[in-house]
Structure formats: C-alpha cells, structure tokens
Design a protein around this nucleic acid. Structure first.
Lengths: 237, 237
DNA sequence: TGATCGATTTTGGTATGACAAAAATTAGAC
DNA sequence: GTCTAATTTTTGTCATACCAAAATCGATCA
C-alpha cells in the first residue's frame, strides 16, 4: 500500500509535480492554459530541464495536462472520463488475459441491472422519452448493422444517464471503448439485430410499467444472449 | 543502427514504450524481473538516456513497472488493483470538487445494492459463513472505534468477494483508500458504532433469508445513515 | 568455514550544453 | 487587412559529466 512516506529527500521531479498539481487544483493554472515553456520553469524553479521534462511527462501521464508531441502542454480539468482513459493501457492488458473480458462483462451486467432497476423506480417522463427515441432509432437501424451497433450503444447509454451521476456516462463510454474491438468484429446479421432490438424493447416496456424485477429479467436475458454471441465468435475468452 | 526502425515522426520514447509493453505482454519480461540498466538500454536500442528515462517513467506511470526512487524498476503484472491506483491522483482532484464525494458515494450505493441482491440470491454457505465471522468481529469491536472501522470495511469487503469477480475486491479496496480520509476523520462514538453494526446485521439476516428486496432496503437505510454521518461532519460536500 | 563490515563498482538522479526540426511569431509583400 | 516568407522560440533528442545511493565484491574476523 503506502509506498510514499519519503517525500522530502527523494526525487526533485516529484516536488515539481506537486507544485503544478496544486496550481491546477487552486485554479492558478486554469483549464486551457498552457504550461510555461520548459526553460522558463527551469528559471523560476531552479531545476534542470531534465527534471522539468520528467515532471511535465508525469503530469501528462496522469491526465492533468494534455501534451501533443510538439505542442505546449495544455492544462485540462480532470473529469471522470480522463480518470478512465488513464487506465486504458492497463485495461488493455487485462482484456488480453484469460477471463479478462468475461470479468469486465459480468461487472457490466451487474451495473446495468442496477441501472434498469433504478430506472424502473425513478425514471422521469423525460428519461422515458429519451429511451423511446433511442429505441426507435434502434429499430430503424435493424437492416444496417453498422448503424444498429451505434444505436444499440446509445440505447444502453441512456440508461447510464438516468441516475444523473456524471460518473456513470463516463463508465459507459469507457466500456464502449474497451469492448469495442470485440463487438465490432462480430458478424451482425439483421435477424440477430432484430432479436436484440426486441430485447431492448422488453427492457423499455418493463421500465415503462415500473416493474424492476421484470426489467432485471429482461436485461439479464438480453446480456446473456449478447454474451453468447460474443463467446461464440471468440472461443476461449 | 542499420536495423530499420521506422523513424516515426512521433516521439522516440513512444517506440521504446511499445517495445517494453510487448516484452511484458509476451512474457519476455516476467513479473518480478528488473528492467535492464538504463545505460544498457541505451546500448541495445541506440537511443539516448533521456529517451530511456522518459520511457521508463511512462511505464511506471502506467503501472506496468514499479519504480522506487533509487532502485531498478521492477516489472509488475498489471492487476485490477493497479488499474485503480493509476487513477489515484485524478480521483483525488475529483473528490475535492463540489459533489465529487457524493457522486462516488452514490455509485458505491448502487453497486453495493447490486451486491447484496446478488448475495441474497446466490451466496453459498461459505459466503454466509464468512459474513457471519466478519459480523461477529464487527460486533466485538463496537467499543473500539479504530477496530470497528476496520471490521466495518471488512464486512463490506466480504460482499464484494461473493460474486467471485476479481474486479470487485479491487474496486472495494480502491473505494476504501479513496474515501478513507473522509471516514477516518469522523468522530466515532460507540453508540453510532452499535447502530451501524445493527444495520450490518439486518443486511446479513436479509441475505440469510434469501430476500433481495429486504436486503436492498436494509443496505439503503444503512448507507443513507452513513452518508448522513459523513455530511454532518463535513459541510458542503 | 562462514559471517560481517568496509571499499569499490555500478547505477539512478540531476545538471549542462548543444543541435535539428517543428511550432510560434514577426516582418514583409500584396 | 490578408497571405506569405523569414525569424525566433520551443520542444525533442543527444552527449557528457558528476554526485549519491545501491549493489557488488573482498578482506577481515569470530
């Protein structure tokens, strides 16, 4: 756990990192501002350019600044999205090891069940309207697998927006990004699309009837079938 | 140097990072192995030490190697825990902005509700036994607030272990770490401990009776009360 | 023989200077 | 005022050097 009790006498870059983190946190460096040029930081903080570059790189890797190759680093206010993009490489490794996809998919099932239950209890008229729109778009795209995939993702995305918690849409975007390679390579026949659409419709109607248990059952069946489709395409996940 | 290294217009360090990522993924660099000395990497890859250090630092920030200040970087097999520790700094910022704690706490409520429902449906005898043990330890610690906090966390931790998904315990550990500052600063009176223990007991018994709805209600009340305790201590979260 | 302690070598952390290439800025032409 | 070319900044990279801490080795001693 705690590997950082040693703050004072260690790396100089860590101090610089802390300084910039504070400046960002306090707003001295606002979102969109550019970091000072490296040589200026060298002057103002009395360290070498090596240290400055290490600090800036670390900030970049932490997602606190956005540093395109030849450009000045720009301060970004960390949102829940950045938190999830930072772990991208690690997740990539996890997905490639046996059971990795399954574990993340199971977690998604669990979360989404919670979401539909909550939706069945607390969805507003506006929420239901948004679901309806997404559902109709999904139906219209049954013949176009590419478009169906998009509207499918969007329909599920509405569920993540209902609790009004900004973490959830970020989680959904992260999931969509991470699992996209698996899904996009799957063959998508119209009849399969139709089955998925019907499942979406059942979930929607269960929410409409304010029946959490039914919504859970419908979603569980839907995602179980979806998993079948995935694992039938990719053996040995 | 004649080896055709596709001179990317990008940064040279990125190439090195990719090389090491591949070596870790393929197992050429196994868990626990140390990276070669920087000067050796300079020789074998024909780049400057600056680039090597940048690459190693990036790998460290990604959580693929563990680099203590003066020691050789050690390869670590990325687990779900590392994925969550990587985002530590970002989460720290998020927790300090208004509503940040509330958003994460709400998410925790949602997840844990899903967990107790699932536990009520599918907990094994062994799971229930582990809950019982944790619960008894919790009861024994009512007079000792420090110990009560530990056993409290542990009881909830059991819930995260029941679905047998390695992501969940990692999530729980991350939550415990992130929210620890808030909780540890709270005054913890024995009577309050007792109330929390009683809540734990109700959750346990609902699971014992295989009643997901009751378990949900019990947990919801428990966490709502817990939030009251937190927000009463810290205004304006 | 084996363990302990000290000297030597290795290695990471930092500083400095230099240079090419790309970006940012300015000057100039229209 | 706008577009373009020349100039200046700035980043990316390299090379070298030095210090301090860690790792290694070796001699001493029980």
């Amino acid at each position: 756990m705690g590997t950082q009790k040693d703050i004072s006498r260690k790396r100089a870059a860590d101090h610089l990192i802390a300084v910039f983190e504070d400046q960002i946190r306090s707003g001295a460096l606002a979102e969109g501002d550019m970091l000072p040029p490296e040589r200026e930081i060298v002057q103002t903080h009395g360290v070498s350019r090596t240290v400055v570059r290490e600090a800036v790189l670390a900030l970049s890797n932490k997602g606190l600044v956005q540093a395109r190759p030849r450009y000045r680093p720009v301060v970004v206010k960390p949102g829940f999205d950045t938190a999830l993009t930072v772990v991208e490489s690690v997740v990539g490794q996890l997905l490639e090891q046996p059971g990795g996809v399954r574990n993340l998919f199971d977690l998604r099932i669990m979360m989404e069940i919670a979401l539909v239950r909550e939706a069945a209890l607390k969805a507003t008229k506006d929420d239901i309207q948004r679901m309806k729109v997404a559902l109709e778009a999904n139906e219209d795209a049954i013949e176009n697998s590419q478009e169906f995939f998009r509207t499918d993702t969007e329909f599920h995305g509405v569920l993540f927006e209902i609790p009004q918690n900004p973490v959830l849409p970020a989680v959904h975007r992260a999931y969509s990004t991470w699992l996209f390679p698996q899904w996009s390579q799957m063959p998508r026949m119209p009849q399969r699309n139709r089955r998925n659409f019907e499942a979406h419709k059942r979930v929607y109607e269960a929410i409409l009837h304010r029946d959490p248990d039914l919504a859970e059952i419908a979603l569980r069946e839907h995602l179980a079938a979806a998993w079948e489709q995935v694992s039938a395409t990719f053996k040995g996940l």
